[in-house]
C-alpha cells in the first residue's frame, strides 16, 4: 500500500481528445481536509478533471503531483472514485461486488469491513440477494459510494454524487466526505447542485470551456454559490 495522500497538485494539466480540448492548462492544489466543489456548465471539463485526478486519464500536458512527487499508478489505491457509472459488476450482488474489490485492495478483516460499508450506506437490506443490474439508480449510487469508500481512500472523487439519491440519502454523501476529512483526506466533488456545494465544500472551482475561471474559498450559503456560479458562467457565455 502506498503512503497516504496529504496533498495533490495539478501543475498546468491539460487534456485533448482528438481535436477537442477538454481541459486547458489548469493548476489546482488540494490539501488535507479540503473539499473542493467543481461546478460548470455541460462540457466544461469537470469530468475530465476528475478523471485526471483519479489517474485513470493521462494528461496531454502538465503534471499530477501527489505529496509533491510525480503521481504513480500505485497511488490509485489511495483514491476513491464515484463516477457517472457505478463501476461494479451487474451480475454480482452488492456484497459480492464489495468482497471482490475489497480482496483486490488487500483489505484485512474483509467481512467486517464489507458489513460496515453496507450498513454505512444503508444497503444491507438488499446486499446479499439482488444482482446489481436490478437495483434502482439510487441503490446503485449507494453501492457505488460503498465501493468507493471501502478501502478508506485519502482522496475521494465524486462525480455528481447526489445523482439518483433522495434527500435523506444525500446525507450519506455528506457523511462519506466528512469521514474522509476526519482521516486527514480530501475530496473533490463535481456537481450541478449549488446546495450540495454549499453544504459540503470548503472551496469553489468553476470551470468554463475547460478553464478554471474561479478558484476561491467557499462563498458561503447556497445563494452565494448560485450568485458566484451565474456571474461566472453567465459572464463567460
Amino acid at each position: 500500500m502506498s503512503e497516504p495522500i496529504t496533498s495533490v497538485r495539478l501543475a498546468g494539466v491539460s487534456k485533448v481528445f482528438g481535436a477537442v480540448r477538454a481541459l486547458s492548462p489548469t493548476t489546482l492544489t488540494l490539501g488535507a481536509g479540503e473539499v473542493v466543489a467543481v461546478l460548470g456548465p455541460n462540457g466544461a471539463g469537470k469530468s475530465t478533471l476528475l478523471s485526471v485526478l483519479s489517474l485513470l486519464t493521462r494528461p496531454t500536458s502538465g503534471q499530477v503531483l501527489i505529496n509533491e512527487r510525480h503521481a504513480v499508478a500505485q497511488d490509485t489505491c489511495r483514491i476513491g472514485l464515484l463516477a457517472h457509472a457505478p463501476l461494479v459488476y451487474p451480475e454480482l450482488t452488492a456484497r459480492e461486488n464489495l468482497r471482490f474489490f475489497g480482496k483486490l485492495h488487500g483489505i484485512d478483516a474483509l467481512e467486517t469491513v464489507v458489513r460496515e460499508a453496507e450498513s454505512a450506506m444503508e444497503i444491507s437490506e438488499f446486499a446479499a440477494d439482488r444482482p446489481a443490474r436490478v437495483l434502482s439508480r439510487g441503490q446503485l449510487q449507494r453501492l457505488a459510494l460503498a465501493r468507493a469508500l471501502l478501502h478508506r481512500p485519502n482522496l475521494l472523487l465524486l462525480d455528481e454524487p447526489a445523482s439518483g439519491l433522495d434527500a435523506s440519502s444525500v446525507t450519506l454523501v455528506g457523511r462519506a466526505v466528512q469521514a474522509v476529512r476526519e482521516q486527514g483526506g480530501m475530496a473533490v466533488l463535481v456537481t450541478h447542485e449549488p446546495l450540495i456545494a454549499a453544504q459540503l465544500a470548503t472551496r469553489a472551482v468553476i470551470l468554463v470551456k475547460g478553464r478554471a475561471r474561479v478558484d476561491a474559498a467557499s462563498p458561503g450559503d447556497v445563494e452565494a454559490w448560485r450568485k458566484l456560479y451565474f456571474e461566472t458562467v453567465g459572464g463567460a457565455s
Binding site: S54, L55, L56, T76, C77, I79, L81, A83, A85, P86, L87, V88, Y89, P90, F101, L104, H105, A132, L140, R147, H151
Partner: peptide, 10 residues
Amino acid sequence: FDAFRALLMT
C-alpha cells in the same frame, strides 16, 4: 457498469 475502471484503481 464500467467496472474495469474500479479494477484498474486497485
